[in-house]
Nucleic acid binder design. Structure first.
Lengths: 248, 248
DNA sequence: CGTGATCTTGAGGGAATTCAATGTCGGTGG
DNA sequence: CCACCGACATTGAATTCCCTCAAGATCACG
């Protein structure tokens, strides 16, 4: 069951303190057509904390943002790009817990030490605030405490959803993945994948070959279309939903 | 991959408002010998909320405490017995997210609707408080907000830990499970399982047969002993740790 | 256009599931 | 007390789904 990971990790991390704060902080670059799926209001005042007190940092593709076991000092809000959090397993295997998109906050689970690693799927810009700062402020700012509690609850729900996913068959996992990615994208049925097949495989607990084969099979049954390997069109949502568990 | 679930659900739920509050609220009945493993201080003042504002309820073995899709009104604190939370999948399959023991708080992930079901593994006593009450109080009681935030973070870490588990082989999963159960018990190397093989299987994403076979194999290699099917003795922690991922 | 990285496709094998019995334990009534 | 029963657990044999190994195909980039 163990997929291998073969990753070149470019280590150049550029940091830029206190630049372009409010301006970019919450602009997920509205793109093309299609009415946006109900997105939660990402612009709560927890975002404010990142703008007011945070600093910015940039990471280039495949650079590590933090690693397991390191002291966990910060909460992160993703401004642009994509991030994956994961745990390294024995034998070079890797379990990717989540992919994050602009507007998402990550690193919420961590106590004094990181239990996960995070790195940049693409070039990335984040804003970060010290956990201690937030915790200290939250002692007297209930609003803030509630916001972070809420963010953490959402993250917990997401994590639990992912658990169910790993109890499913390969087809079901891939279907779930596609539907989730589509739900997060603005475009109705077109999904732009920022991550590799290896990333997807490590997220779904499958091998790269199984993911690829499943995509191919779905294409041959007209469930999806694959204009290019990282561009997927959902052609038969009904079937995907059925696979996903909307009553079999 | 789909294990079937065959469960008789006795539906008699006895509720008892406002009885035996403080007395039982935080007494995990200290048992036998052996120095307790470092237990987190379960007696934080979030527990107070359950004592002060909550009410009690009892559920008999296999009774449902709440179900997916129902409105989520309460947070729960387990007083006695054991609880499992799970998601039902297609084909009668089930993914158990967690088992809870006395002192644990559960139901933290839920927003307006339950995303998981919970039911009683054994006869159970809980205290419950309205989510709305806690949320309302937390608006002006930062202490409280922080405590629930912290509880939620711990739950998130646990959930993420479970994710890794599901990426492992059957042997590794069972080893992880045993070590976790042992860590939560007071006794050093003796584990009393309150749940069935089916529960364990659904927790680990395996079938009942695979769990059973794995136990048997571990017994034959003197890794564990099985005085009875629900009573397991860890005889070779080193080996279990190795399986679990302490460097293979 | 070569060269490497990524993705796809094929063939074979292995780990866990499925199907099917058998074994064990706790309770209940003869 | 012991035979019987049902629920739960174990064990065995066959199958299946996914992984592993191994080639190709495609794409990006110099």
């Amino acid at each position: 069951m163990p997929p291998l990971l073969t990753f070149a990790r470019s280590q150049d991390i550029r940091e830029a303190d206190m630049d372009g704060m409010a301006a970019l902080a919450n602009t997920p670059s509205p793109r093309t057509l299609a009415p946006a799926r109900s997105q939660p209001p990402r612009d709560d005042s927890a975002g404010d904390v990142f703008s007011r007190l945070g600093r910015s940092a940039s990471f280039s593709k495949d650079a590590q943002i933090y690693g397991e076991g390191e002291p966990a000092d910060y909460f992160y809000k993703l401004i642009s790009g994509a991030v994956r959090t994961y745990k390294s397993l024995t034998g070079g295997r890797r379990q990717i817990d989540a992919f994050y998109r602009p507007g998402d906050v990550f690193g919420l689970a961590h106590g004094s030490e990181h239990t996960l690693s995070a790195d940049a799927v693409t070039d990335v810009r984040v804003r970060l605030v010290r956990q201690r700062t937030v915790e200290a402020l939250a002692q007297h700012d209930c609003e803030l405490a509630l916001q972070f509690w809420t963010l953490t609850r959402e993250e917990l729900r997401r994590s639990q959803g992912h658990l169910d996913l790993l109890a499913k068959t390969a087809d079901e996992r891939v279907a779930s993945f596609l539907l989730e990615m589509a739900a997060r994208a603005r475009s109705e049925d077109e999904v732009q994948l920022s991550m590799s097949r290896q990333d997807i495989a490590d997220h779904l607990g499958l091998t790269i070959e199984t993911v690829s084969r499943t995509f191919s099979r779905m294409e041959s049954t007209a469930t999806i279309a694959l204009p290019s390997s990282r561009n997927i069109v959902l052609r038969d949502r009904a079937r995907l939903n059925r696979l996903n568990g909307d009553a079999n």
